[in-house]
């Protein structure tokens, strides 16, 4: 797994690549919470290179969403691959995250 953080004036773009699973979710959680702690108003998580996620990873998405909403911030996702979108649908996550086809439309 690789996480890349790019800060812009109005938003922070986080790109996650590879797999988020039980073996590395702690690392992903720390990266995301660091971004949240910096206090930006809008975080876009680019999932176009995310190949796999399990419930351990999903819980981190939910933690970030809760924190951002509590601060009146915005957290959105873009570029979800079909297999991952299906997991979001099953989990009822598709209705609690704003999702865009690509980062251009998320910005």
């Amino acid at each position: 797994m690789n996480v890349t953080v790019t800060k812009s004036e109005n938003y922070t773009l986080v790109s996650v690549e590879g797999r988020v699973d039980s073996t590395n979710a702690g690392e992903f959680e720390k990266s995301m919470l660091d971004v949240v702690a910096e206090g930006g108003n809008k975080i876009i998580l680019d999932c176009s290179e995310l190949n796999y996620i399990s419930s351990t990873g999903l819980r981190i998405f939910l933690i970030v969403q809760k924190k951002m909403m509590a601060n009146n911030g915005h957290f959105c996702l873009c570029g979800l691959q079909a297999g991952i979108k299906e997991i979001f649908d099953i989990s009822g996550f598709s209705s609690i995250f704003k999702m865009f086809p690509d980062k251009e439309s998320a910005i």
């Binding site: 999903l58 909403m69 609690i96």
Partner: peptide, 18 residues
């Protein structure tokens, strides 16, 4: 319960459901 709002949705508990 998949109908809960973000605020009320518990963290975790999805594994076995999946």
């Amino acid at each position: 319960d998949l109908t809960l709002s973000v605020e009320d949705r518990p963290i975790g508990g999805l594994g076995i459901f999946l």
